[in-house]
């Protein structure tokens, strides 16, 4: 979903757009979240074996990992947040 930075005073969307949103929310949003979450865990795996030592876990030689590093730079912070957030079983309903 595109984030709306201007808060509170967005203009009212038309009926068609509303319905589209609702339909998407009902039919696909859960699926999108499941896909994103699966993606996240796969990315965890990916990052562990490329830049795992960023988490203080000494893993494989990062010779070729370093080539991945430039692309990861902007996401490292949020990756760490995702990895370290303690999750509860009640977070898994989606």
């Amino acid at each position: 979903m595109a984030s709306k930075e201007q808060k509170g005073e967005e203009k009212r969307p038309g009926f068609g757009e509303m319905m589209k949103g609702v339909l998407y929310g009902m039919a696909s949003h859960g699926h999108v979240m499941a896909a994103l979450r699966t993606r996240m865990y796969l990315e965890h795996l990916f990052m562990f074996i490329t830049l795992g030592d960023m988490l203080g876990i000494p893993v494989l030689p990062p010779y070729y990992s370093l080539r991945i590093l430039p692309y990861a730079v902007p996401n490292i912070k949020s990756w760490k947040m995702r990895v370290f957030r303690e999750r509860d079983f009640t977070d898994a309903i989606y």
């Binding site: 979903m1 949103g21 998407y24 929310g25 859960g30 994103l36 979450r37 949020s78 995702r82």
Partner: peptide
């Protein structure tokens, strides 16, 4: 974080919650 936390428009969220 674009995975669990990200803003979603209210119509979509309504649809999701209702579903």
């Amino acid at each position: 974080d674009g995975v669990e936390f990200f803003p979603v428009n209210r119509y979509v969220l309504w649809g999701y919650q209702f579903k």
